[in-house]
């Protein structure tokens, strides 16, 4: 079945199976930033933005996304570079496997919460697991990113 969507600001048409997930579709077509971590809706490494909202691509059937807008870090370069900058400053970056997913979640949080408290930040990002950093350095990087006047 043909599904038409806007992927990273470009209209794309994909021929997909009925049970194909967005994660599978994206990786099949070279969008390799989206990672297959747990494949059980638990780790957040497959996070993408669908119509601006962070969602788990491992659990979304592509067939349901007709005419939706999907964004991965490839489509959000400028903002992701800023997040990456603060991750670097805080030493929050180790293996990098979770970074694309967490960067999109951080960006979505900035869009939806004005001046989030520490607890709100933790609650928003709790679904994006990092097995290297222990989250503390990431948390500091997020605080600095949110304070970025740009």
């Amino acid at each position: 079945m043909i599904v038409e969507m806007t992927l990273n600001h470009q209209v794309k048409r994909f021929d997909v199976d009925h049970d194909e997930t967005l994660l599978q579709t994206l990786r099949k077509h070279g969008v390799m930033s989206v990672k297959n971590g747990c494949n059980a809706s638990s780790c957040g490494t497959c996070t993408v933005l669908v119509d601006g909202k962070p969602m788990l691509s491992c659990s979304l059937l592509t067939i349901r996304l007709q005419n939706k807008k999907v964004v991965t870090v490839e489509g959000l370069q400028e903002e992701v570079e800023k997040i990456g900058h603060y991750f670097g400053l805080e030493g929050a970056d180790q293996c990098g496997y979770c970074n694309p997913g967490v960067a999109l979640a951080i960006y979505a949080m900035k869009q939806s919460l004005a001046n989030p408290s520490s607890e709100e930040i933790k609650t928003f990002l709790v679904g994006n697991l990092c097995r290297c950093s222990g989250h503390q350095a990431q948390f500091k990087a997020v605080k600095r990113y949110l304070g970025d006047p740009l």
């Binding site: 809706s41 638990s42 957040g44 996070t47 669908v50 909202k53 962070p54 969602m55 788990l56 659990s59 979304l60 979640a105 979505a108 949080m109 609650t123 928003f124 990002l125 709790v126 679904g127 994006n128």
Partner: peptide, 12 residues
Amino acid sequence: MQHIMGVAFRNT
């Protein structure tokens, strides 16, 4: 609800 997985899960 805040304790059910993460926001991306709850958006789905």
